[in-house]
Design a binder for these strands. Structure first.
Lengths: 177, 177
DNA sequence: ACCTGAACACCGTTCAAGT
DNA sequence: ACCTGAACACCGTTCAAGT
């Protein structure tokens, strides 16, 4: 496997999925790729940029899109997209932290987030309002994932619901209402 | 200044407020207190517990409470409390991360979060629903603070609104509706 | 152009030994 | 009981030097 931007990012994604962010260090990454740490810095500028690329790779997948035509109303599509995001991020340790870095650095590069916004516009919100609404929903998705992952990590009994879906429905109702 | 749990936590709060989480290391904390690093571990179990204590100190202050009698409806009190939280956390670098650790470890120890929940109950939500609603609102407060702080850190022009208040109003409307 | 080797300036945590 | 000194096993980033 030749060392390129692509292989570096892909290996980073694998480490994140299997072991979480704490194990995703530049040194661990170098070891996995059988190179010295310094070599990585020829292919990525720094760790922050690497994480942003990891987030993009995680989110920019067709599975995390929704076909608006399949739903009776834009609000229903929004609900379904948010649920997809939540379920996709839940099994990836520390995914909220990674996504947050990325959504700050490259606000308009994450496709599911963009679709969330455009669906809100379809639902009748102004351009600015749909930006704000997207924030509210993304905050809820990431916050709920983080909350649940924290419970697992502190091995609290987490059989009880986190109320993600209930909160989501109320939020969407508030936005659409 | 004698080395006690209290002085350790207080100094940690100061470092966090002045320099952010990146500078709040056990070693830096020890230097500030003129002791060796190991000494800290006599007074706090580990860094995670220290951060939880820091979060409690930040949030458990009378300024972050609201007198329900001052508002026409419980929903208005909820709005005001959430705004207070947002404004208090905004100037403290990386506060959302710190609060998240704490709210996972000791779910029921952070007073403003508890009041948020009880106000939602006053607004007519069931006990479970007010737990969920509290999550939605806390997610939005912390997410909005994190988003805004990230912009500043990457020095993007952050004069534009983050839509916190707009999203908050919609969320509360959805919860109360 | 791409990588190694080595350094710089850090981390959190533990623990024998001192007082 | 409380603290020092020192170690263990790590970090991210940089950069001369090699190929």
């Amino acid at each position: 496997m030749a060392l390129t931007q692509l292989t570096v990012v892909d290996t980073a994604v694998e480490i994140l999925q299997q072991f979480g962010l704490a194990d995703l260090s530049m040194r661990r990454l170098a070891k996995e790729l059988d190179v010295q740490v310094g070599a990585l810095y020829w292919h990525v500028k720094n760790k922050q940029e690497l994480l942003a690329a990891v987030a993009a790779k995680l989110l920019n997948t067709p599975e995390l899109a929704v076909r608006a035509e399949d739903f009776a109303t834009p609000a229903d599509a929004v609900l379904q997209l948010a649920r997809k995001l939540y379920l996709a991020l839940l099994p990836i340790q520390d995914s909220p932290e990674v996504i947050e870095v990325a959504s700050a650095m490259q606000a308009g590069q994450l496709q599911p987030v963009l679709q969330l916004r455009s669906l809100l516009q379809d639902a009748g919100l102004s351009e600015e309002q749909s930006r704000f609404g997207q924030q509210l929903l993304l905050n809820h998705v990431l916050g709920s994932v983080a909350y649940r992952q924290n419970l697992v990590q502190l091995d609290v009994d987490s059989s009880e619901s986190d109320g993600f879906d209930w909160g989501l429905q109320r939020a969407v109702a508030g936005l659409a209402g």
